[in-house]
Amino acid sequence: MGVRTWIEGWPVYRQLVGTDPLGLGAAAKSARSMALTPRTETADSMARSVCPYCAVGCGQRVYVTDGRVTQIEGDPDSPISRGRLCPKGAASKNLVTSELRQQKVRYRRPYGTQWEDLDLATAMDMIADRIIAARDETWEETDEAGYLLRRTLGIASLGGATLDNEENYLIKKLFTAMGAIQIENQARI
Rank of each mutant, 00 (worst) to 15 (best):
M1L: 06
R4K: 07
R4N: 08
W6I: 11
E8V: 01
G9D: 13
P11A: 11
P11M: 04
Q15V: 00
Q15M: 14
L16F: 09
V17T: 13
V17W: 05
V17I: 14
D20C: 00
P21T: 02
L22H: 01
G23D: 02
A26P: 04
A26C: 07
A27K: 01
K29W: 00
S30W: 00
R32D: 12
S33H: 02
T40N: 06
E41D: 05
E41L: 11
D44P: 11
S45D: 03
M46L: 00
V50W: 01
V50T: 15
V50Q: 10
C51K: 14
C51H: 09
P52H: 12
Y53L: 07
V56F: 02
V56I: 15
V62R: 12
T65A: 07
R68G: 01
V69Y: 09
T70L: 03
Q71P: 00
Q71F: 06
G74N: 09
G74I: 08
S78Y: 01
S81P: 08
G83Y: 05
G83C: 08
G83H: 09
L85E: 05
C86F: 09
C86H: 06
G89Y: 11
G89T: 09
A90S: 14
A90G: 15
A91Y: 04
N94D: 14
L95C: 07
V96K: 03
S98D: 11
S98W: 05
S98L: 02
E99Y: 04
Q103R: 15
K104L: 11
K104N: 15
R106F: 11
R109A: 15
G112E: 10
L118T: 04
L120H: 07
L120Y: 11
L120V: 12
A121Y: 05
I127R: 02
A128C: 04
D129S: 10
R130W: 02
A134F: 02
A134K: 08
A134V: 01
D136Q: 12
T138S: 14
E140L: 13
E140H: 14
E141Y: 10
T142H: 10
E144Y: 05
Y147C: 03
L148N: 04
L149E: 13
R150M: 04
R151E: 11
R151Y: 06
G154K: 11
I155Q: 12
S157W: 13
A161T: 06
D164A: 06
N165C: 06
N165H: 09
E166I: 12
E166K: 14
N168G: 12
L170E: 03
L170V: 08
I171P: 05
K173D: 05
L174H: 01
A177F: 03
A177C: 03
A180H: 07
N185Y: 15
Q186M: 14
I189D: 03
